[in-house]
C-alpha cells in the first residue's frame, strides 16, 4: 500500500547574500507501508528540507506531496496526525516528566482521550521508561531522552514515521538501539522514512534507498538494484558514482 507520494517537490529559499537557493529541486518518490525508505545524501543535500515539507513545517515552492492520501498543503493538520516526526532538532520540554511528555503529545496529536492512559502505559513498558517516568526530562541522560523522544514520536500511533538523521550524536549502543526500534516499527507495518548520511546505516536498514544530492534525486531502488546499476558493491562507492555522474 502506498502511503506517501511525492511528485516534483521543490523548495527554494531566498537569501540576500546568495540569492535563490534551490534546496530541493523537483524530487519524486513513493513509500509503501511496512518498508523503510532511506534518503541518503551528504549534509545540505536537501534531505531535511524534503522531510520538513512532508511534515508540513515548510511549504513547497512547487510540486505536491501526499501522506495517507492527504495533501500536505491543503490538509496540513490531517497530515500531521498521520505522521510522527523525529529529528535531532526536535527537543522535549525540559520541565515535564517523561510520562507527562507522552501524555501531552498523545493529547495534542488528538489520540482518543479515553485511550491515552493505556497507550502511555504500553509505551512506558515497551521502551523501558518505567524506571524514570516521573523524572523531569531536564534530569534525564541522553539515552533516556532518546527513548522518550522515540516514544513521543509514535505515541499517537501514526502510520507514517519520519526519522531525520536519528542517530546523529548518539553513541554506538544507543545508535544500535535506535536501529532496532526502527526495524520493529517496520515489522508493525509502519512506513518509515529514514534520512541519513551514514552509508552503513542505510545499507543495514533500508528497503529502498534514494540518493539525493544538490536538492535533486539521483537514483532510487533497493541496495541490490543499485549494485546492479552501478556495478559497485559498497554503498559508499555507489553513492560516489551517482554523485559524480549526477554532478
Amino acid at each position: 500500500m502506498i502511503t506517501v507520494q511525492v511528485e516534483g517537490l521543490a523548495k527554494t529559499f531566498f537569501d540576500e547574500a546568495r540569492g535563490a537557493i534551490h534546496a530541493v529541486d523537483g524530487v519524486s518518490f513513493e513509500c509503501r507501508a511496512g518498508t523503510i525508505f532511506g534518503l541518503l545524501g551528504a549534509n545540505g543535500a536537501g534531505k531535511t528540507t524534503t522531510l520538513r515539507m512532508l511534515a508540513t513545517i515548510l511549504r513547497p515552492t512547487a510540486g505536491r506531496a501526499r501522506v495517507m492520501g492527504h495533501d500536505v498543503v491543503a490538509e496540513p493538520e490531517v497530515v500531521r496526525r498521520s505522521l510522527g516526526f523525529y529529528s535531532a532538532s526536535t527537543a522535549l520540554y525540559p520541565r515535564l516528566t517523561a510520562r507527562e511528555t507522552l501524555e501531552f503529545f498523545a493529547r495534542v496529536n488528538r489520540y482518543p482521550r479515553e485511550r491515552v492512559g493505556a497507550r502511555v502505559d504500553e509505551l512506558v513498558e515497551r521502551f523501558g521508561i518505567d524506571r524514570f517516568e516521573s523524572v523531569r526530562v531536564e534530569k534525564l541522560s541522553s539515552g533516556m531522552k532518546q527513548k522518550v523522544s522515540i516514544a513521543r514520536t509514535v505515541v499517537h500511533d501514526p502510520p507514517v514515521l519520519v526519522f531525520d538523521e536519528p542517530t546523529v550524536g548518539l553513541d554506538v549502543i544507543n545508535a544500535l538501539e535506535m536501529q532496532d526500534v526502527i526495524r520493529a516499527l517496520r515489522a508493525e507495518g509502519k512506513t518509515i522514512i529514514f534520512s541519513t548520511h551514514v552509508m552503513s546505516e542505510a545499507e543495514k536498514l533500508c528497503d529502498t534507498i534514494v540518493i539525493i544530492h544538490g536538492g535533486r534525486l539521483l537514483a532510487s531502488g533497493s541496495l541490490e538494484e543499485h549494485r546492479r546499476a552501478t556495478g559497485k558493491h559498497y554503498l559508499e562507492d555507489i553513492f560516489v558514482q551517482y554523485v559524480r555522474e549526477g554532478g
Binding site: 496526525r81 529529528s87 526536535t90 527537543a91 522535549l92 496529536n109 499517537h156
Partner: peptide, 14 residues
C-alpha cells in the same frame, strides 16, 4: 531556543 517549537509544530495541533 530550546528546540521544542519544531516538535510542537509537527504535532496535529492547529
Amino acid at each position: 531556543e530550546r528546540g521544542t517549537l519544531e516538535t510542537l509544530l509537527t504535532t496535529a495541533a492547529r
